[in-house]
Amino acid sequence: MSMMEMASPSDATGSTSVPGDLVLVTRPPAFGLPTACPACLPAFLYLRMAAVSFQEQVTAVEPDSEDLPSVEYGENVGFASENGGVVEFLRREKIVDLDAGLSDSEKAELETCKAMMESWVADASAYELWMRDNDRQCKAVYFAQLPWGLVQALDWKQRVAVMQRLGVTPENAAVRSEELYRKAGNAYSALSVLLGDQKFFFNNRPTSLDALVLGHLLFHMKVPFEISTLKGEISKHQNLVNYAESWSKQLLGEDGAPIDAAFQPKVPPPPPPPARAAPAKEKEKPAKKPRSEKDILFKKRAKYFVIAQFVAVLMYVVFAGFEVEGDDEVGDDDE
């Protein structure tokens, strides 16, 4: 699917889209980023690169949800935590697929790089974000809209979970962090070589890898961490820095500059009509048809049988003088 063929006259994201068409649900914006969540930013950039018009919906009270980012398309929803995530959902619903048209060898390379981004780089990124020294930035990313008390509790809970996942304990923090940063550094070197001085990683056109890498680079370059080892690592590769900065201008339209014409959003195809379009009554019937008259009669009889039994038991309870003491016997009747 080629997505640069047209530029709709809209100038702001989602302004022309029909409500309910395509909605991206993300965590709230901060630090000049449209969403300050390292998981949501790549999805946002993916849709921007695909020049698809979408509405943004911010949810600020789910810092521990793995479902974000999610994409809503009519009644259908693609959650990040589900098979393939948002990108796979967009492909399945035939909204956009940036990776279509890549050759097999390119696809292999793309998958390898994505795997590297999602493991080595993502781990190092999570470590840096959740380390104690960057507490203030982390809170701005995840807990900005939560009331006092919940912030502290959730922050603690999440931090423990992240550090446990990364295998970082107070004793091994130094060794483990060095390893995490080394792997991330290696990944940056590999990406830097792959990118060279091209505009995109493959064929001068955006792919899901571009969205993933850009999201990561922009997050670490823009968020003013107290300790930002990764920013230092990134700045060792000038082509990555240039790549991030130029695309940030074109895709996010910073400093008053408009979004690049090639990425002006266009309205996605309308979603399939919801299932309710057909009258509900007609739908109920086919589901019920397989039940034969006999079945229905049997079920009815079974129901009445149960009721009769219940009534019989009840009659017994009432008439056989079965006295239930109830609340009266709160253990005070021993003389």
């Binding site: 949810t59 009270v61 959650f79 939560l146 919940l150």
Partner: peptide
């Protein structure tokens, strides 16, 4: 009360999805 609304089945409608999350 700390309330946490979740949708483990992931089949909630849009309005319910907008209600998910933590609140005090």
């Amino acid at each position: 009360t700390w309330r946490d609304l979740k949708d483990p089945s992931r089949c909630a409608s849009k309005s319910v999805r907008r209600q998910l999350g933590h609140s005090l």
